[in-house]
Design a protein around this nucleic acid. Sequence first.
DNA 1: CCGTCCCGCCATCAA
DNA 2: TTGATGGCGGGACGG
Length: 914
Amino acid sequence: MQAARGAEPGADDKENRPAEPRGAVPGTPLKQAAASPSVLAEMQPGCQPLATPPKPKESLPADPWTPTSNLKMLISAASPEIRSREQRKELSNAAGEVLQPKRCSQEHLSGDEYEKSQPSRKEKSLGLLCHKFLARYPDYPSTAENTYICLDEVAEELNVERRRIYDIVNVLESLHMVRRLAKNRYAWHGRHNLTKTLQTLKKVGEENKYTQQIQMIKKREYEHEFDLDGERNEEMERSSVSNEHSEMCFVELPGMEFRAASVNSRKDKSLRVMSQKFVMLFLVSTPQIVSLEVAAKILIGEDQLEDLDKSKFKTKIRRLYDIANVLSSLELIKKVHVTEERGRKPAFKWTGPEVLPSIQDTKLEPTSATYIPHISECIASREQCSKNLFPSSIKQNFTRHPSLMKLVKNIENDRRKIQSAPASPVKISTTGTDQNLSAYTSKMSQLAAIAQHHLEGPSKKAKEMKMKLPRSTLENNLSSPEVAPKPETHTAAPSQKSVLTQPLGVLPPSHSPVSPVILPQNHSGVSYAIYLHPSQAHTVTTYSPSFMLQPLPCANVTGIKSINSKVLNEITTEEGDNHIAADDPRKSLTAKERPDIQSESSSQRCLKRSQALQENNSIKKYRSDEESLDTSVGESIKNERPPSRGSQMNHEMDNFQEEKQNKSETLDLSVASCSDQCKRADTPEDDNRTKPEQDIPVAFAIPAHETFFPSGYLIPLTQCTHHGNKASLSNGEKTGTCSLQHSSFSSPPAGVIPVTASELKAVNIPAFHITSLNIMLSPTSIAAAAPVLSNSCLNSSNTSSAQNPNSSVLNFTLQHVGLIPAGMQVPANPVLQHIPLSPKAENSNHSSENMNLQEEKPSVPKEPEEPQTTTEMFFRTPGGPNTVSSLSANSDGTDRTSQGTLYIPQRKLEVSED
DNA sequence: CCGTCCCGCCATCAA
DNA sequence: TTGATGGCGGGACGG
């Protein structure tokens, strides 16, 4: 192994050591000397000084909870991958003292250790390095304490160049697992925010139409091969693609804005952004398997898709490997190979937690607290929100408007300065306060959970996640029943707090955002509430596009899961490991089950939720009580994994036109009321947050209960325009509750409704969401609308279709605002069709994959998980090129379709793990 | 040979 | 100018 390197003395030095030299540099303190165990928690003041802290390398306390850390280490070691990788290296060290390491030895030691430490390339791999890095910190650090990371220290301890640490940290930052505090310093948040982050990313990804893009790319490929007429498609693709995401900015969570100055400047290329996009692709795609090739193409951009330099492509791929290695270490993805007709292609499969639609779920609470740190941040966050607005508004891109950019930049600069200041972050001890208690309690539980988690092994992880996490969360909750704690913790930031509280007040206490909103109404439990966004109306005008796209995040989110199933894509996973994909039960959560879940779940879900709510903890149980829903404790739901919803969303869309009409009326009324309410609630104080309107999410929650419709319509408002993503996030976090809530709202739709098609049918309730509409529309509508509304970007061409885009847009907007009825208007543009589903077929899974077109997919096998039938719907736009988005496929085999734009033939893919 | 990706040069920023 | 970041791609490793 080392031979080569090892042999050279220099090598070692170089690689490992190099850091030191640098580190030595005046700027940063140095590692060793310093001394403080940075890692951990350095809550202490000492650290604050930005730059480099102290760190002693000596021990590493890595985590506050030592035990845990050790555990982790062990676990990691245990895990196959890790093991394999690490095997040699670290083991020795690892176990115990992880950190320290080698380096020490290396220096003087020559011998064996030395050699060992150095090993081959593999040993130096980013993935391994990342494992080591992660081993230093607890997955779920206590909220009370803050854990800081000093890059220099870490680099030293891990014996790597700092450059490498940046790679890791950037990716972690993209997931909000760490937050940059100042130069050389990061705060460790662990996985607390992960769920929220993923939800957000999913939402954003959906907004960006990544799914479509993926399809387009695939389609294109096919076309090339087959020489299908791609032109038309391509054009469409291009336009859409370009429009869509051209570039988006880094997606920030409310409390987590990134501060790096440079970030903005280099944003597009930033590893962070790339990482987020990459993750989005997984979250959005049905099979949740993304090939590097596709990812690279999408990430490259938009503009140049066609140009595609090879070099560029190659570079992108390289970067993706870097990101993938880190994500793999986080066990969010796993490498597999997809075998298509063309051959085997490297790809990655999402193995992380499923993203719930809206539910934010679990962990949030504590987390939120965590974020909040300084006041300054709060402020910043607001600002950011504003920044985000644009982006959010536009779903297409997150790019900030130039004008905003400047503002933002200034703000950031200020912020940065502050932060950078030695004192910068001060931590937060503030956070600690309330939380401590709860945190403390929760900690214990968490530990247990974590331990279990680890023990079980990666494979199970997913499931466990569900279970455990929830549990832990629940516990936490219990300890602090109310979300409140967070808010309080937040207290530091007054503004936030206020915000939070309000929402909370409105909603059910529990942070559980979820359920509250939902109403029990239907038997199914699915009751739908209509949420209007106050702002919407107004906003709409402004941003219409965005919101159209945006629909509720939740809803979108949900979809993902459902899909998956193998069937859909016909992808087969061959994982060496196992069956996982196919069979794996555990996986099921993630992948497999979904399908089933969907079908079943719809009802079950409802039940679950309700239960959860009731019982708080008992997640698993399923009962049907709609009533429970009322209670609103939604947490449970989240935890559960709401299965697939994304697709479901679509399904949800199903409506019965007729009913729609009828209902529409009602809806309107309700909507109106809702909107009003919402506004009231929201607006007032929201200021804190930043933008009143946009923030709105909270509002949703409020109105929700009131609004419901018996009919069971769920109408989520799109959250407001705002944020599509970011904003929402921000809100959520800050508000903690708020976010949750609205998420919940959204989620409900997703989760609850969706599937329920059967239920709905039973009831005869049309389920029409605005959300759905939005979603459905979005592609089309967006295109159409964009020109008008946004002004920008979208190609009008797409919309052009029959009607005047503008008018159509307006209509949509109005509809949205006004409600569904408006939708009715739809006639003109989009038409919804209801398709009965065949029982099995329904799964559709992914709409995406199955598109009809040329290829048919074989029938899919999917299993019908449930006998229930689901309905599928299609949404069509009238004339637009893009016309349809199909929600589900049908048994017939007919496919219904898909977005106009994309017709993707599906191929079968085989996935194999390496 | 090729997929993967380590390594570190060097650009960009901020101070 | 210096230090911190991080884009980028040459070229090495390992299969």
